[in-house]
Amino acid sequence: MNTHDPSDRSPAARSAHEAPSPDAASVSLAVSAARRKGLSVGVATGLYGISFGALATASGLDVWQAMVLSAIMFTGGSQFAFVGVIGGGGSALGAALAAVLLGIRNTLYGLVLAPTLPRGGAKGAARSLLTIDESAAVAATAGPPAAKRAGFWAAGIAVYVFWNLFSLVGALIGQSVGDPGAWGLDAAAAAAFLGLLWPRLVSKDVVAVAVAAAFIALIATPVLPAGLPVLAAALVAVVVGLLPRRPVAGGNRVDATDEDGEQA
């Protein structure tokens, strides 16, 4: 994201799909930057599939069940929640419920991505399948619509391929591969999320939302079932977004509005 043309850094260019179309050169720069970012996110996340596959078989799923989750459910948080409930002695119904509760955020991602991505047909189905934390985050930070699309598909396809590949590896060789944490992969995932968040922190308001969301997720972690803390934190965005504000010219340009309206 730091390889963008500097002209992309203005609040107007950041403000999602309504941005006036920049010149072709900066768009193609943004597209290739988004594609690179998507690929690197995909590889880093996909490697973590080993831990899912290993945990799934350790929890009592067979290899086929683990692979149906990775191939069709394809959303890591829900998958870990599902096998976590089964491994903890829970019922299949409880496991499914935990997975579905965690998946609510994917609906929110679709809401955000809908104006940018193609509707209908095989691409529409693929778009739905590939809608996960990583692809939505790469798209959200990519700038012009063409770069959002490129980032979404690059991240979605790369995560899908590597996640399924390494889920299979993990399920087949089980625990013998060792702990992905020893390789720092858990920290890499945290850094990847931070790297995706960073370029969006353009105003005090946005920073406050991110910090409040992080805080709520942390205090909710010991008291809510896995995955729900992230969802509880999303309420921060809903509450802040719905708060009444004084009208500012160009009302739709959300990021620009934040800067103009709040830092004056």
């Binding site: 955020r105 929110l108 931070l194 959300v254």
Partner: peptide
């Protein structure tokens, strides 16, 4: 537009 910020902030923390 704030949802990704809140979700990313929460994901970094957790």
């Amino acid at each position: 537009s704030l949802l990704p910020v809140a979700l990313l902030g929460a994901l970094v923390a957790t």
